[in-house]
Design a binder for these strands. Sequence first.
DNA 1: TTAACTGCAAACCGTTTGCACGCAT
DNA 2: ATGCGTGCAAACGGTTTGCAGTTAA
Lengths: 142, 142
Amino acid sequence: MNRSRAIKEFKEIIKKSGLKYTPQREKIFRVILSTKGHFEIEDLVHRIRSKNIDVSRATVYRTLDILKKLGFVNEVIKFKNKTIYEVALKEHHDHLICRKCGKIIEFHSDEIEQLQNKICEEYQFKPEFHRLEIFGLCKDCQ
Amino acid sequence: MNRSRAIKEFKEIIKKSGLKYTPQREKIFRVILSTKGHFEIEDLVHRIRSKNIDVSRATVYRTLDILKKLGFVNEVIKFKNKTIYEVALKEHHDHLICRKCGKIIEFHSDEIEQLQNKICEEYQFKPEFHRLEIFGLCKDCQ
DNA sequence: TTAACTGCAAACCGTTTGCACGCAT
DNA sequence: ATGCGTGCAAACGGTTTGCAGTTAA
C-alpha cells in the first residue's frame, strides 16, 4: 500500500471509529510512514521535534495507541523497557534479532504459519496474531 | 530435574562463576522453584514478604538477573511493562497466550524448530534462543 | 454546541543504582 | 582480609493521567 492511500484509509477508519481526525494525528502518522523499518516512540518524538512539528509527547503516545488498536502499527517487542513498533503495511513476517548489534532481519515462512495453525487446532485455540523472534548473532557479528 | 538437585546445581554453578552463594540467593531460588508456571518479580517479592523471608526488593531483582544469565530462568515476555519469567527446568516450549483471560498454554513442535534452523541457515544467522508466542482466544474464552 | 482532543506537568510504576555496612570466601 | 553482596532510599526512564483550555464535527 502506498503512502497517500494509507493516509486516506487512516482518515476514513479513524472517523468511522467515532474519533476525530486532527492535524496532530495526521502529522504523527506521516512521520511514521516515512520511517523505514522499526521504531520506538522516543525516536519518533525526537524526529517530530527535529522537523519542528509541534506535537506533544503525550499526544504521540496516545496516537500510537490508536494506531495500534486500528491495526496501522504492530508492537514488535519490548526491549530494555522500551516498546518497539513497526508499520503494519507490509505482509506479516517474523524477526531474527542480533543480540550484539541489535539488527533486525525480517523473514517469512508459510510452512511455519501452517504448523502454527495446526497446533492451535489441537488446543482449540483461536489465533489472532503471533510473534516469532529468533535471537542470536547475525552474519557480521559472529 | 527435581528441586534439591536444582538447588545443588545452582550452588555449584554460582560458585563456579566466581559469585558468592548467599542465603538470600538460595531463599529466592527456593521460592521460585516452588512457583508453578510463570511469574513476575513483584509477585515474587510479595510471596517472599508473605513468608517473612527478609530479602530486599533490590536483591530480588539482582538475583533474577543472575538466574537469567546462568540459564535457570527465562524471560518469557514483557507484558504491560512488566517482565514475566518462567523456571527453565523443563524442556524448551512456546506459548499460546489468551488475550482475554491471560492464560498461558505451553506447546512444543520439533517441526517448527527445524524450520527455524533452516531459515537461520539461509540468513547465515546463528540462533541462540527464540520465542514464539501466539496470541488469541483460548477454548473457554471464544 | 459539545464531546473529543491537546499540551503541560505531575504522577506512576517497574526497575536500577550509589552508598555504607556486612558477610562469604 | 577483601571484595562481592545486601538493604535502603533515592533516582531513573518510559509511559500514563488530571486538568484546563482548544477544536473538529
